[in-house]
């Protein structure tokens, strides 16, 4: 677990400060708890095929809407019950973890990569490239996020892949602005001037000299954006504009089970609970990272 959790720090800190980082991070017990939950979720997602007792798509027609096992009418064969067409809830939730975490990571990796390039360009080429990039980000930011992703998905069609594209576009300005601001403040430091005097090229200064020193706030932002992306993807799924049934995406599961809210509430409550726990765990880790990486942003 320790090796896993310190991996993000490896990118920004020399090995000697790694232990320092872990000490700061571990001081926040809530963050460690969040990390533990997150690791469990990640393991469930990776080994979904081994862990899930059934296929998430298999319909047991004789066992439709069986309540979870703690209910008197429950069935030990289906620990968390079955849904409206007799699919095993546990299996669907486990496979849903894979989808949701994948969406979150994919969105953040894509917008992080694009955001770093665009943000650095905006910081180092202040004339028209910066103006074009920043104006484009202003345009994205002036349409409310969820609304923009709804419109994008409506245009390119509702699907899991398009959900990722839409949320990446919506998330992009956060990273571009953050990278640019961080790069601008680093750019004038002595070590950058020294690198330039020593004859380092512009690309080298951008990516090798400045970027590593901007990573702390970027990593915190990345962590918090994973949870945001998961929430938005679930919201799109819930509106019928994200992953399409029968995909076991948590938001889509909620939407298709809505009419059973009264008679079979577990079909609705469990996927939502899964979203809440996942997002909460990631936010706890994000808060912990922020406290450990950036003393200035410490919440108190």
């Amino acid at each position: 677990m320790a090796a896993d959790s310190t991996r993000p720090a490896a990118a920004i800190a020399a090995p000697s400060t790694l232990r320092l980082f872990w000490r700061d991070f571990a001081a926040n017990r809530a963050a460690v708890a969040g990390l533990a939950v997150l690791v469990l979720l990640a393991l469930a997602a990776i080994f979904a095929d081994l862990l899930a007792p059934y296929s998430p798509y298999e319909q047991f027609r004789d066992f439709v809407r069986v309540p979870p096992v703690w209910d008197a009418r429950g069935n030990a064969a289906f620990l968390l019950g079955t849904d409206e067409v007799g699919r095993d809830m546990l299996s669907r939730l486990i496979h849903g973890a894979r989808l949701s975490l994948f969406i979150g990571v994919a969105v953040v990796v894509a917008s992080l990569a694009l955001g770093i390039v665009l943000g650095l360009v905006a910081a180092f080429f202040p004339r028209w490239p910066a103006i074009v990039i920043l104006r484009a980000m202003d345009v994205i930011l002036s349409v409310p996020g969820l609304l923009l992703s709804i419109v994008i998905v409506a245009i390119i069609g509702p699907s899991l892949a398009n959900t990722i594209v839409a949320i990446t576009i919506v998330t992009l300005p956060n990273f571009v602005r953050l990278v640019r601001a961080a790069a601008l403040s680093e750019k004038t430091r002595d070590y950058v001037v020294a690198a330039r005097v020593a004859g380092a090229g512009r690309l080298r200064i951008m990516f090798r000299t400045v970027l590593p020193n901007c990573m702390a706030p970027i990593i915190v932002q990345a962590a918090l954006n994973i949870s945001n992306a998961i929430l938005e993807a679930a919201a799109l799924g819930f509106l019928g504009l994200g992953a399409q049934p029968p995909t076991p995406e948590w938001g889509a599961m909620l939407a298709s089970a809505r009419e059973f809210l009264q008679s079979a509430s577990w079909i609705v409550t469990l996927p939502g609970l899964a979203i809440l726990v996942t997002v909460l765990a990631i936010n706890l880790v994000g808060d912990g990272l922020r406290d450990a990486l950036d003393p200035k942003m410490r919440s108190g």
Partner: peptide, 8 residues
């Protein structure tokens, strides 16, 4: 802050 409000 982490709440999926549609589920809430």
């Amino acid at each position: 802050f982490s709440m999926p409000i549609f589920w809430w």
